[in-house]
């Protein structure tokens, strides 16, 4: 579904040139859920932004569904196929557009018909009732906003969903709701996920394979079994796992 080969991403030019990602390569199969894990500044979100064209300075080869993605040109078909959910639901919705406007504009951009029927359907798909249709973002809680953002991403019926820390701005109980929703949607629609997170437990919950990133490089690829058993080779991955598992100590004792 998604193949990234030898990707470099940089910001600025000349004296301010910064290499954010160096030689990242990975492959995500159709229907798979893949995680990118690392700390802030490791370049994990930058990879997503480069794929979608939001970070213009990159080189390497990216293919979505066997079709190459070019650096500065993405057509309607690409945007229909690949969508993204952002980290902060407070920043990713236009403050003056109602839920209805956000969703119907997106539907129109993707050339959908029967918009009046599809908007309530989308809301229902993400677990929001029809009464939310004409609300504005400031009238919604963080979790509700993130549901709207997910509905927007789903509007064009994409195949690949890029999730940029979709729950890190939310309370844990709301995080559980959103993670369940994402799992359900993937099951119903056969979506492919690429999820960026700093939280190994979240990635371990939703993803089957993951790449650990450190200062712009992928240092190790793990599958979820290896992750759970703590069988990582790279010292950095080990340190990350140790930090997450000691956090789970109390929870484990709860059983």
């Amino acid at each position: 579904m998604l193949e990234v080969d030898g990707m470099n991403v940089w910001f600025g030019a000349g004296a301010t040139h910064v290499d954010a990602v160096q030689g990242a390569s990975f492959f995500v199969g159709r229907g798979e859920s893949f995680g990118l894990v690392g700390e802030s500044g490791s370049g994990k979100s930058t990879i997503l932004r480069a794929i979608t064209g939001l970070a213009p300075g990159w080189s390497g080869r990216v293919e979505v569904d066997g079709k190459p993605v070019y650096r500065d040109r993405r057509d309607r078909a690409f945007h229909k196929r690949v969508q993204m959910v952002f980290q902060d639901p407070y920043a990713s919705l236009h403050p003056r557009h109602s839920v209805d406007r956000v969703l119907s504009e997106t539907l129109r951009l993707h050339g959908m018909d029967a918009i009046d029927r599809r908007v309530p359907q989308l809301l229902e798909d993400v677990g929001l009732g029809p009464k939310f249709r004409f609300r504005y973002p400031h009238q919604l809680s963080g979790g509700q906003r993130q549901r709207v953002a997910i509905a927007r991403a789903l509007a064009g019926e994409p195949e690949l969903l890029l999730l940029d820390e979709p729950t890190s701005a939310l309370d844990v109980s709301v995080q559980a709701e959103i993670l369940n929703l994402l799992a359900d949607l993937r099951g119903e629609r056969g979506l492919t996920y690429v999820m960026v997170s700093h939280d190994l437990a979240v990635v371990g919950h939703l993803c089957q394979r993951l790449a650990v990133m450190q200062s712009g490089r992928i240092v190790e690829m793990l599958d979820v079994e290896q992750l759970r058993r703590g069988r990582a080779e790279h010292p950095y991955s080990r340190a990350l796992i140790a930090a997450s598992v000691s956090g789970g100590r109390t929870a484990r004792a709860a059983e």
Binding site: K80, F86, P95, R96, T106, L109, R152
Partner: peptide
């Protein structure tokens, strides 16, 4: 992010300026 989001839906600069920035 909300401008990034609408760009990812394939909106062009005219739409972004008139529909999203102007308001």
């Amino acid at each position: 992010d909300f401008i990034s989001a609408i760009r990812l839906q394939g909106a062009g600069p005219v739409r972004i300026i008139t529909q999203h920035i102007w308001p």
